[in-house]
Every structure is written in C-alpha cells, then in structure tokens.
Amino acid sequence: MHGLVIDREFSGTSLGERLLVWAHRRSAEEGAQYLRLDCVETNVRLRRYYRDAGFAEVGRRDFGDVVYNGWFSVVLFERSLT
C-alpha cells in the first residue's frame, strides 16, 4: 500500500483504521500473504500508529528527492494476512 493519506478534517473518525481493515481483507481475498506499507522515517507518530495496528517494522529505504533536492528515508512495514 502506498500513498494512503487521510485529510486532517477526518482525524479521529477511525477512517484510517477502516481503510487498513479494508486493505487487509481485500489483500487476503486476492491471496496475498502480507500487507506492506511505508512511511517517512521521521514521522514517529505514524510509525507508532502502524505498529499499534499490528504492523512490524521490517526495513528502511533511502530515496533521493529532486523536488526538495535531498534525501529522505522511509520505514518499511508489513503485517501477515494469515
């Protein structure tokens, strides 16, 4: 899963949780073994949210960014669907 963003207007409505539940169910129906996602390494709050949702941090990846003329890192997460 990549690029999942919730408008701050819907913060606290469990919309993010419902989307993760939907993605989990849909991925399992398609026969996937894992649901994987990432987030910017410096977003400690979102990382905690994903861990609390049952995802495990399984790696890290660095990206070059032409727009911001620099590098940023993401943390890779996965959750078993079995």
Score class of each variant (00 low, 15 high):
4 L>S: 06
9 E>Q: 14
9 E>Y: 15
21 V>S: 12
80 S>L: 09
38 D>V: 05
71 W>L: 12
66 V>C: 09
17 E>W: 03
11 S>L: 06
76 L>I: 02
73 S>Y: 01
49 Y>G: 00
65 D>P: 13
30 E>V: 04
57 E>F: 15
24 H>Y: 14
12 G>P: 07
3 G>S: 06
12 G>Q: 03
63 F>P: 01
71 W>G: 09
3 G>D: 06
43 N>G: 02
33 Q>P: 13
67 V>F: 07
76 L>G: 10
54 G>T: 09
62 D>E: 08
60 R>G: 07
7 D>C: 03
72 F>I: 05
27 S>L: 11
29 E>Y: 12
54 G>I: 12
73 S>H: 02
26 R>L: 13
25 R>D: 14
66 V>Q: 07
23 A>P: 04
33 Q>A: 14
28 A>R: 05
34 Y>D: 06
43 N>R: 07
10 F>A: 12
33 Q>W: 11
49 Y>R: 01
42 T>K: 08
34 Y>V: 08
14 S>I: 04
13 T>Q: 11
64 G>W: 14
5 V>A: 13
38 D>T: 07
2 H>D: 14
63 F>S: 05
44 V>M: 02
2 H>P: 00
58 V>D: 12
33 Q>M: 10
16 G>E: 01
66 V>D: 12
17 E>D: 09
38 D>G: 03
41 E>C: 03
65 D>M: 14
32 A>G: 10
64 G>Q: 11
78 E>W: 10
1 M>V: 13
23 A>D: 06
25 R>G: 10
68 Y>M: 07
73 S>K: 00
74 V>H: 05
27 S>T: 14
47 R>H: 03
52 D>W: 02
53 A>N: 01
6 I>R: 01
42 T>A: 09
8 R>F: 15
62 D>T: 00
1 M>S: 14
73 S>C: 01
39 C>R: 04
31 G>Q: 09
22 W>G: 08
8 R>G: 04
26 R>G: 06
22 W>I: 11
4 L>K: 07
14 S>H: 04
44 V>G: 02
10 F>Y: 15
26 R>A: 14
11 S>Y: 04
71 W>P: 05
11 S>E: 13
82 T>N: 10
47 R>K: 07
16 G>W: 03
74 V>D: 04
56 A>E: 03
19 L>V: 08
66 V>A: 11
25 R>H: 08
56 A>G: 08
80 S>I: 02
